[in-house]
Amino acid sequence: MIHQITILFIGAAEIMVILLIVVLVFGADKLPEIARGLGKGMRQLKDASNDIKQEVTKSAKENNILDKDVTKNVQEEIDKIKDDLEDFTGSLKRNK
């Protein structure tokens, strides 16, 4: 059995064609610079999203919005509902 690499519904052949076009347009000597720039951009985006997440969490803690007891109770209720659904659907599932 042959396994193909699929990323975002793009096969290996399509990725190779895209890479060939990138090499033809920018040249092989510019690829490391482009990759470095993309890496820095992705790192900055990740850092910015982490900063936003920390600010939201900090603000929630300051305003007493973040209540672990409430989230724990909600999670327990969700788990109970999941168990009830599994019990109900267990009798409806087909045996293969």
Score class of each variant (00 low, 15 high):
Ile7Val: 13
Pro32Asp: 03
Asp29Glu: 13
Leu24Met: 14
Val70Thr: 11
Val17Ile: 15
Val25Met: 10
Lys40Cys: 03
Asp51Met: 12
Val25Cys: 06
Lys30Tyr: 08
Gly11Tyr: 00
Glu62Ile: 08
Val70Lys: 15
Ile21Met: 06
Val74Ile: 14
Gly27Val: 02
Glu14Phe: 01
Lys93Asp: 03
Ile34His: 03
Gln4Ala: 07
Phe26Asp: 09
Ile10Gln: 15
Leu85Lys: 03
Leu38Gly: 07
Asn64Gly: 02
Ile7Lys: 01
Ile18Met: 14
Ile21Leu: 07
Ser59Ala: 13
Val23Arg: 12
Ile2His: 09
Lys93Phe: 03
Ile21Ala: 06
Glu77Leu: 08
Arg36Ile: 05
Phe26Ser: 10
Ala48Cys: 01
Val22Ser: 02
Val70Ile: 12
Gly39Glu: 04
Asp51Asn: 14
Glu86Ser: 04
Gly90Gln: 03
Lys82Thr: 08
Lys30Pro: 00
Val23Glu: 09
Gly90Leu: 00
His3Arg: 12
Glu77Ile: 04
Arg36His: 11
Arg43Trp: 11
Lys96Glu: 09
Thr71Leu: 13
Lys68Trp: 05
Val23Gly: 02
Gly37Phe: 08
Glu77Lys: 11
Asp84Lys: 07
Glu76Asp: 15
Thr6Ala: 09
Val56Lys: 11
Glu55Tyr: 11
Asn73Cys: 06
Ile21Asn: 04
Met42His: 10
Ala60Lys: 09
Lys68Leu: 14
Gly37Thr: 11
Ile5Val: 12
Gly39Met: 02
Ser49Cys: 10
Met42Ile: 12
Gln54Ser: 13
Ala28His: 02
Arg94Cys: 05
Ile34Asn: 06
Asp51Ala: 15
Leu92Trp: 05
Gln44Met: 14
Ala13Lys: 15
Glu14Val: 02
Lys61Val: 09
Gly37Met: 07
Ile78Val: 15
Ile52Pro: 00
Asn64Ser: 10
Asp67Cys: 03
Gln44Asn: 15
Gly27Arg: 00
Leu85Asn: 12
Asp69Trp: 01
Ala35Cys: 05
Glu14Ile: 01
Ala35Glu: 08
Arg43His: 09
Val22Leu: 10
Ile21Tyr: 06
Glu14Thr: 08
His3Asn: 08
Ile7Met: 04
Gly11Val: 01
Val70Gln: 05
Lys72Trp: 03
Lys61Arg: 15
Glu55Pro: 00
Glu62Val: 10
Met1Trp: 04
Leu45His: 08
Ile7Arg: 02
